[in-house]
Amino acid sequence: MLLIRCPYCEEERPELEFRNAGEAHIARPTNIAAETDDDFEKFFFIRANPKGVIYERWRHIHGCARFFNAVRDTVTDKFVMTYKAGEPKPAKLPGAAK
């Protein structure tokens, strides 16, 4: 069982308290009704599914109930870092490019 650090509770808690909520940093268009079919397809259906670093949303559903963002490596399953919802994608990851 993984330990995940909730950026709101500021502590590591067991995976059981959390629920994955899909890829992060996909903002809903402000004028969504005017989106083209192609743009809507990209927004709603297309996901990265990378081998390696993924940016994704998690919810501390059985804790503070907040949604937050996390950086995880899909190969090792390790969480690189977590940060609050609305914060920008981190420019540099801890431990990267020593």
Partner: peptide
Amino acid sequence: MNHMEDYLQTEFP
């Protein structure tokens, strides 16, 4: 409830 919280927290904060 999850759907509502999701939008409230992340799209319409």
